[in-house]
Design a protein around this nucleic acid. Structure first.
Lengths: 251, 251
DNA sequence: GAGTGGTCTAGACCACCAG
DNA sequence: TGGTGGTCTAGACCACTCC
């Protein structure tokens, strides 16, 4: 096999482990590593990719988490033959990117940006004092033009460089990317899952014909710094008849 | 500070990284490392715990995933002051253990074990041929005596050492533990989340007064070996009014 | 500049599986 | 018995934060 496997030619900015994982994804996607085949032994594979074995193992571990590879001690590492989710909720991404990952085209309707003050309930969710200024976004997300989720977001204005930093937020923008550009990259979120019956407003926004229940994701998002503060509180109502919500659980 | 931090005295069977993480959990739980305090620098902390820095980092990374610690580059690692979930769905555990983790007492009612054959739909979920023998368990789980979820599980009989291996399964048993003892340790699962309106049977089993929607977790579980085969398919209907379902999402 | 976390390496030894 | 993945180490260098 004379395929050039090396990952060191890559000049992207990500870590070597992430680039190695990306290279393995390509080799699998392109069929160089077909489903069911065994990978070369780890020291050999590391040599071919031009990385150390721990770095290779980090990359392989990542792909195992995505169900692309299977390790069998004493036997080898294999390309998985089982179907796998294109996107799982355990990975934190923006709603738009999640829609892209499942192969659909994201869109936004009804975007509205407001400045509000935190009532006691919202203040508790955001870990701020009641009465604090909060930026509030609402919008309906579509996939291939079909509404799939209605999203409401609340961001403490005190965490933004300026309270007006999000006033120019557009329908095509990514809130995750925008917050990262403002120095608030979201790194993790704690979501509460609640099945709910849609009210008239939600039925209207999502253009629902039936009163089938929706799945509400109520999330507290944390940024890298200062780290302990809630950078974003959100409520997303998903119509699971129109978009599958999947989740990879690891033991 | 003359606390004995060393982790090498521990004789348990887990890996050194896992024992180190457990030691850090103890130090946090016991208040030696109070919320908001900065941990010693990584080389220093590794020395105190008697492990190498990569091993320490693996442990710290695990606790960060559990929201117990926060890393700030160039500044330090801090004990989180924010509340965190006791149990997240992103971690694969048995339902009973999940109930224990949130501080409640698990129980089981209405356990039934049956032998069935796979119809085409079930065969597709289990990746077996239609007509294959399947062991089917149903039971209702309680927390502190209150029904919180109804569970249905299907296991390909061909993966068991004997088709009758689960006939003696008892109300107090853990299916995860039992399957591990049978050589089928479950390592990961892909769950689909669907809000559903309970039918009469579910309302009866869960003793529901209202017709509030339930959250259905439809899961394909994978074992370590052979690795690609579905070892267990399950449907769990949760009453989220009686038990919170939370999920930690990482970027 | 000093100290912190972030990344990567080379090598070692062990546990498991297959022949 | 030989090859595989599983784990751990010591050390190096870099990037970032704060003084």
């Amino acid at each position: 096999m004379d395929t050039n496997w090396s990952v060191r030619l890559d000049t992207e900015t990500r870590t070597l482990g992430a680039r190695t994982a990306a290279r393995l994804r390509e080799l699998i996607r392109d069929g160089v590593l077909a489903p069911g085949t065994r990978l070369p032994a780890e020291p050999e594979l590391a040599r071919r990719l031009g990385v150390s074995r721990p770095t290779l193992r980090a990359a392989v571990t990542e792909l195992i988490g995505d169900l692309l590879l299977v390790r069998r001690r004493g036997v080898g590492t294999f390309v998985s033959a089982a179907p796998r989710p294109a996107h799982g909720l355990e990975r934190l991404t923006g709603t738009g990117r999640g829609i892209t990952l499942v192969g659909r085209r994201p869109g936004t309707t009804g975007l509205r940006v407001r400045h509000v003050v935190a009532d006691p309930a919202l203040a508790a969710h955001l870990h701020v004092d009641p009465g604090s200024p909060v930026v509030h976004l609402t919008r309906t997300r579509t996939a291939d033009g079909v509404p799939v989720a209605h999203c409401a977001e609340w961001i403490p204005a005190g965490l933004l460089p300026e309270p007006t930093a999000l006033d120019a937020f557009g329908a095509e923008d990514s809130l995750h990317d925008r917050l990262a550009a403002l120095g608030l990259p979201l790194r993790q979120a704690v979501a509460r899952l609640v099945p709910v019956v849609p009210d008239a407003d939600l039925r209207d926004r999502l253009d629902l014909a039936s009163d089938a229940p929706l799945l509400l994701l109520e999330q507290r998002h944390f940024a890298v710094a200062p780290g302990d503060r809630v950078a974003l509180f959100s409520r997303h109502w998903y119509d699971t008849d129109r978009i599958d919500l999947e989740l990879v659980r690891r033991g």
